[in-house]
Every structure is written in structure tokens, then in C-alpha cells.
């Protein structure tokens, strides 16, 4: 035995516990107490109802392309710090490509045949923008 530690808890251990507690409370105040709307704009890509990838747009340095293959179709999605759009797709309807560029929280691009949904979440919410669009 190189050295055996003390085997009974003592007052100094309480100090470690207190330190961890302080850290926990401090972290809690920082992440929970702050303004909830400070999350960055995030693209949530879901395929067949499962979230395949989440990308914080602010973490991108420039446009990035993602190739999504699902249900026999291949989609080319472009993510950039400002916006997201479907560049090309081999689905029959092309609705996703026609949707164009999305850049605000709550907007989404959908490809029904491939069952792919790209949705923007978080970020600064535009108070005057509609919450839902019927269409």
C-alpha cells in the first residue's frame, strides 16, 4: 500500500460537499435563472419522426451541406449561420425545394415523401410573427 487514505468521513469532506453544492447552485442560477429566450437558433432535422440531427446555426462558420437519404429519396439541405434551405431533392413533389429559405424560429421545411422535417427552434422570437400558419 503506497498510502491508505482516511476511511471515515470528516469535517473536511463536508467542505468538498459544500463546494460541489455551491457549484451546483451557481450553475443552476446561471442556466435556469437567465432569460429563457437566449437559446441560439437551432435547426432540428427529423427523419421518420426521429430527430436525426440538431445544428446550432451560430456554430457554423459558413454554409454547410447535408445529404439526407430517407424512404428512397435523397435530399440536399444547406445550413448557414443565417438561413436553411433545401437545395435539391429527387422527391416527386419538390415542395421542400419550393419552400425556399427559412430563417426564423418556428419556420420549417417539410418533405412528405421522404418524411423529413427541418424546423428552426429557439433564437430571438419575432413577437409580431404568426405562431401558426394554416395552409
Amino acid at each position: 500500500m503506497k498510502s491508505s487514505p482516511k476511511l471515515r468521513p470528516c469535517g473536511w469532506d463536508a467542505l468538498v460537499v459544500l463546494l460541489v453544492l455551491l457549484l451546483a447552485v451557481g450553475c443552476g442560477a446561471a442556466v435556469w435563472g437567465g432569460n429563457e429566450a437566449t437559446h441560439d437558433l437551432t435547426a432540428v432535422i427529423s427523419v421518420d419522426g426521429e430527430t436525426a440531427e440538431t445544428v446550432a446555426l451560430s456554430s457554423l462558420s459558413g454554409p454547410e451541406e447535408r445529404t439526407l437519404t430517407a424512404n428512397g429519396y435523397t435530399l440536399h439541405l444547406v445550413l448557414s449561420p443565417e438561413e436553411v434551405y433545401m437545395e435539391a431533392a429527387d422527391c416527386p413533389t419538390q415542395d421542400c425545394v419550393h419552400t425556399g429559405h427559412i430563417s426564423r424560429s418556428g419556420q420549417s421545411i417539410v418533405c412528405l415523401p421522404a418524411r423529413v422535417i427541418v424546423r428552426l427552434e429557439g433564437g430571438q422570437k419575432d413577437e409580431s410573427a404568426p405562431d401558426v400558419v394554416i395552409g
Binding site: P130, V132, V133
Partner: peptide
């Protein structure tokens, strides 16, 4: 109240034009 947009039928591809 919730803000519910009615899409502009003239722009069928763009859900954001109301």
C-alpha cells in the same frame, strides 16, 4: 391571443406569405 396566419392562396409554395 395566439397569432394565426392564413396563407396567401396566390403563393401556394410559401407558407410565410399571409
Amino acid at each position: 391571443p395566439w397569432r394565426v396566419g392564413i396563407q396567401d392562396p396566390k403563393v401556394p409554395d410559401d407558407r410565410n406569405t399571409l
